[in-house]
């Protein structure tokens, strides 16, 4: 396998020390008008760990994820990524919102894989993977191309580099989207229900790629309905309902012997 441009667990540890959490969310609240979607979320992910967020639809899982990369602005609470406060600059004892340019710069530490892939329709698979390295990070085109091809190889799509999204299956598009997310060497990878829009027979190819990434030690925050994936791959499972984390911990414990009735009810329905 060619050298792939992905940060490994060792990179992350040497750069930041093993003690500081990679993602630290405290007291996060989000309201849309009258509707309180998040009601005080506390959540921590250590470097190189995989956290799966489970829960029924409307429990606020996706909103939580979208607050982490500032596609949504939280109403209250704080998010730190690798020790850096997200979305604000503290000065004179007050929090000042960052400008759109500064937010854009901060988003470079994360990458997101969406439920509906969201590949750029007017660009080939390779161009999609090269887009952020070239146009956000200023990587020279030749190097970005080389690394992009390696990444496509890695998700099993080397021969499809010149295909446009409309010419690829859902599973293939999602694997391109994962390659695109890896291309910027994110410190945290965010997955927003990456397999929910896929036909059942295409789910496994995407989960296989994600399992590989987890083994390589990437820090991943995964919103999913795939209980088996959570059980096998996650280091920590968070179960959300009604905008709060109802239960969290070791996947074997949360999934096999849930202590909370709401978790039990949810697992009965999905298993």
């Amino acid at each position: 396998m060619p050298e792939t441009p992905v940060a490994t667990a060792t990179d992350q540890h040497t750069a930041h020390g093993p003690d500081r959490p990679m993602v630290e969310i405290a007291g996060l609240c989000k309201t849309f008008g009258e509707h309180r979607v998040l009601r005080g979320i506390d959540l921590t992910v250590a470097p190189g760990q995989v956290a799966c967020i489970l829960g029924p639809s409307g429990s606020g899982k996706s909103t939580l994820l979208r607050c982490v990369n500032q596609l949504e602005t939280a109403t209250d609470g704080a998010i730190h990524i690798d020790g850096e406060l997200v979305g604000y600059r503290v000065q004179g004892g007050r929090r000042h919102p960052l400008s759109p340019r500064q937010i854009a710069r901060q988003r470079r530490s994360t990458a997101m894989v969406f439920q509906r892939f969201n590949l750029l329709a007017h660009q080939s698979a390779l161009a999609n993977v090269m887009e952020a390295p070239v146009h956000v990070h200023g990587v020279p085109r030749d190097r970005a191309r080389e690394e992009g091809l390696a990444l496509l190889d890695r998700v099993g799509l080397g021969p499809y580099a010149d295909h446009y999204p409309a010419q690829l299956s859902g599973g293939q598009q999602q694997r391109v989207a994962i390659a695109r997310a890896l291309a910027v060497r994110p410190r945290v990878l965010l997955f927003d229900e990456p397999t929910s829009a896929l036909d059942p027979e295409l789910v496994d190819e995407v989960l296989a790629v994600m399992t590989d990434l987890a083994r390589e030690g990437l820090t991943m925050l995964v919103v999913t309905h795939e209980i088996a994936f959570a059980r096998d791959v996650a280091d920590t499972v968070f179960f959300m309902d009604g905008g709060v984390v109802v239960e969290s911990g070791d996947p074997a414990q949360v999934l096999n012997a849930p202590s909370h009735e709401r978790t039990r009810a949810f697992l009965r329905r999905v298993l």
């Binding site: 854009a104 990458a111 969406f114 892939f117 969201n118 590949l119 750029l120 007017h122 956000v136 989207a177």
Partner: peptide, 26 residues
Amino acid sequence: DRGQVEAATAMGMTPLSVFRRVVFPQ
């Protein structure tokens, strides 16, 4: 597609880049 705009935004593109690279061509 709103999703493509979000994807480009999530990559860390500035609003102007999102317009130039994603919205305008389409």
